[in-house]
Design a protein around this nucleic acid. Structure first.
Lengths: 345, 345
DNA sequence: CTGAAAGCGCTTACAG
DNA sequence: CTGAAAGCGCTTACAG
C-alpha cells in the first residue's frame, strides 16, 4: 500500500498546484491552459510562464481525479469472445486507432479470462471505468443484457445485431458472400456448396443469405445438400468437407464462411485426394496475411474489419446513448484472387 | 458533457452515501463492509442491514474516486507490438486471467495504433491509469526507456530481456530449441538448418543458442551456411528456404524459429517441389490450433505462453518496483509431433 | 461498535 | 484577466 516508485527510482507526483506555484498563478488557470479552454482569456506572457512550468515539471494530469470530477473515464471498453481469433484482432486494431484519435484509451476484455462471460468483464469494470462498451461477436445472455441496461452505460454491438436494441454496426456480409459466390459463378461453377458458420452467429446468417441470393440471381437452383453448417474454426471446415464429399453429387466449388475454417477445408480436401483448384475451387471470407502461404494460396474476400472497429468506436463516442444506431460500414470489400479457384474441369 | 444515460435508459449513480442513508449508518461503515476491512468490528445485524442496502441499490464502487483516494488504479497495462501475432494473443490471455484473479483489469495497447511506438501508449496512459506496465516484445527506444523511468511506474519486460534493467520474465527458449533440434537428431538428421528470427529479437537469439548447443552436444559440426536469418512472419520463412535450397549441400531438416514463419517455409518448399517430410523435415517453435491443419500437419514445440503472461502479471503486482526480477518460467515445454518430420531418406 | 472529518487532484461556475 | 471555493465519491486514521 506504499506509494510505488518506478522500476528502481522515485518520482513525486506533480500536481496542478505544483505547476501553479511555479508559474505564480492559480491552479485554475493552469487547468484551463492544459485543457485549452476556449473561454480562457489569458495574457500571452502568463500563458508562456504556465507552459514553461508545465514542461519543466513534466506535468501529467491525474486520470482518476479528472475522471472523478468530470465523470468521464476517457476509456472505451471492448468485449470479445477470444483474442486468438484474427477477426477480432483486426477489429481491436481499428478500435484502438479511433480511440487514440479521440484521446481515449481502449480496454479490451475477452470471455476466456475469468469464469467467462461478459458478466465477469462487466463486474471487473465496476463503475466509471469506461465511458461505453463495444460488444463484438459472441453470445450475450439475458442476464448480461439486463446488467448492461442497469449499468447506465452506452453500448454498441459490433459485427452482430444485438438482441433487441437497435444499436449495432455491422459489415455488408451479404455483399461479401455474393462477391465470393459470383466469382465462382463467373468461373463457370454451378454446383457450389456453402460451408457455413455456427448456428447462432449473425454473420453466418448474413453470409448464407448472400450465398443464396447470388445463386438465385444467376438462376442456379439451390440444393439443400450443398448447404453445410460448420464452425468458424478449422475442425468445422474439415468435417463439412467429409460430409459434402460423401454425398451423391459432390460440388465443384466451395464458398467457406470464414478463412480459419477454410484452413481445415484445404486440409480435409487434401486428405481426400481432391486437388485444389483442379477438382475443387475454394474461396473464403476474410483475408489474412497467411492466406497467401496456404497450399494453395487461398482466394479470399477481404472485409473492412479495421474500419468496422474504428467506426463503431467513433459512433459509441459521439452518438447519444438513447439514439438508435443501425449502420452498415460501406468501406470497399475486395476479392483477393489467388490460386484456390479455377474453372471447373 | 451531459451525464450519459445507458443505451436508452437512465440510471442515477448510487453512491456510498445512498447506501449509508438507507442502512442508517455512516458511509465509512459501508466502505469498510464493502472492502472487507478485517479491523472492522460490526454487529451482525448492522452488517446485515448494510449488505441488504448494498444489494437493493446494486451499489458499485466508483473506480475513479477509489483510485484517487488510494492512488491505486486496479489496472495493469500491457504493451505489445501487434495484436495480429498469435504469440501475443496467448500472452494477453494469460495476463488477463491473472489480472482478473487479483481483481485487476488489463489495458492492452499496441504500437499499430497511434503514430506507433510505446511513447504514444505511454502518453495515452497519462498518469495513474495503470499500476504497472508489462512490455512484451518489440523494440523500445532510448527515449521511451527514459519516459518509463520518469514515470514512477513499475515495469517488467515480458518474453525479452530489457536493455539494462534486471526486470524481465522469459521462457526457456534455449530448451525449446534444443528439444526441437534433438527431435531431428533422434530421427537421424545431421544436416539441420536453422531459419532464425529477426536480428534484434531476444527470443531469436536464445533459440539460436539452443540450436547450436544441441548440435554440439551431439557432436555434429556446425555449418554457417545452414544458419539463415528470417523474420517471424511467413515471408521471412519463404525467403530463407530459397536461400537454403540454392546452396551446394542443402539440409535434410529445418528448425524454424517461429510457427508463423514455418507457414512460409512449407509454402516455399512446396513451390520448390521438395516433399515434406519425405525430402525435408520441418519443426517450429510455438504451437497453434491451425498447425494441425497445415499441409502437412506441422510438428511444433509448444511453449507455455499463457503461463508466461500470467506469471509476469503476478510478479508485476507483487514484487516491489525497485527489486530485480529475472525469471525463467518453468512450465513444461512440449514437443507436439505431427507429420512434418521423419527419418532422412 | 460506529461516526465525523480530512483530503486525494482535478474542473467549473462565479466573483472581482 | 485571474483567483477562491465547492465538490466529484471514496478511504482512513482518529475520536468517542
Amino acid at each position: 500500500m506504499t506509494q510505488s516508485t518506478g522500476g528502481g527510482r522515485r518520482a513525486r507526483r506533480v500536481t496542478l498546484a505544483d505547476v501553479a506555484g511555479r508559474a505564480g498563478v492559480d491552479k485554475a488557470v493552469v487547468s484551463r491552459v492544459v485543457n485549452d479552454d476556449p473561454l480562457l482569456n489569458i495574457r500571452p506572457e502568463t500563458r508562456a510562464r504556465v507552459l514553461a512550468a508545465l514542461k519543466e515539471l513534466d506535468y501529467r494530469p491525474n486520470a482518476a481525479a479528472r475522471s472523478l470530477r468530470t465523470s468521464r473515464a476517457g476509456t472505451v471498453g471492448l468485449f470479445i469472445p477470444d483474442f486468438a481469433n484474427p477477426v477480432y484482432t483486426e477489429i481491436i486494431t481499428g478500435a484502438e486507432t479511433a480511440a487514440a484519435e479521440r484521446g481515449c484509451a481502449l480496454m479490451v476484455g475477452s470471455s476466456t479470462a475469468g469464469r467467462g462471460g461478459a458478466q465477469s468483464y462487466l463486474d471487473l469494470l465496476g463503475q466509471g471505468r469506461v465511458d461505453g462498451l463495444l460488444l463484438a461477436g459472441g453470445a450475450i445472455t439475458d442476464e448480461e443484457q439486463a446488467t448492461l441496461a442497469d449499468r447506465g452505460l452506452p453500448w454498441l454491438f459490433v459485427n452482430r445485431r444485438g438482441p433487441a436494441a437497435g444499436r449495432h454496426v455491422i459489415l455488408d456480409d451479404v455483399l461479401g458472400a455474393r462477391m465470393a459466390v459470383e466469382h465462382l459463378l463467373d468461373l463457370g461453377h454451378r454446383r457450389i456448396a456453402h460451408v457455413g458458420g455456427p448456428a447462432g452467429a449473425d454473420t453466418a446468417h448474413r453470409r448464407r443469405d448472400g450465398y443464396i441470393t447470388a445463386l438465385r440471381s444467376a438462376g442456379v437452383e439451390e440444393d439443400p445438400r450443398l448447404l453445410v453448417q460448420g464452425t468458424y474454426g478449422p475442425e468445422g471446415g474439415a468435417q463439412a468437407v467429409h460430409r459434402l464429399l460423401d454425398g451423391p453429387e459432390p460440388p465443384t466449388a466451395l464458398f467457406v464462411a470464414n478463412v480459419t475454417s477454410a484452413i481445415g477445408v484445404l486440409s480435409a480436401l487434401r486428405a481426400h485426394g481432391v486437388a485444389v483448384p483442379g477438382e475443387m475451387s475454394v474461396v473464403a471470407v476474410h483475408d489474412l496475411p497467411l492466406a497467401e502461404y496456404l497450399i494453395p494460396p487461398l482466394t479470399t474476400v477481404r472485409m473492412p474489419l479495421r474500419a468496422l472497429g474504428a467506426r463503431a468506436t467513433r459512433l459509441l463516442l459521439s452518438v447519444p446513448a438513447d439514439h438508435p444506431v443501425e449502420e452498415v460500414v460501406r468501406e470497399p470489400i475486395e476479392l483477393v484472387m489467388r490460386q484456390s479457384t479455377a474453372k471447373p474441369k
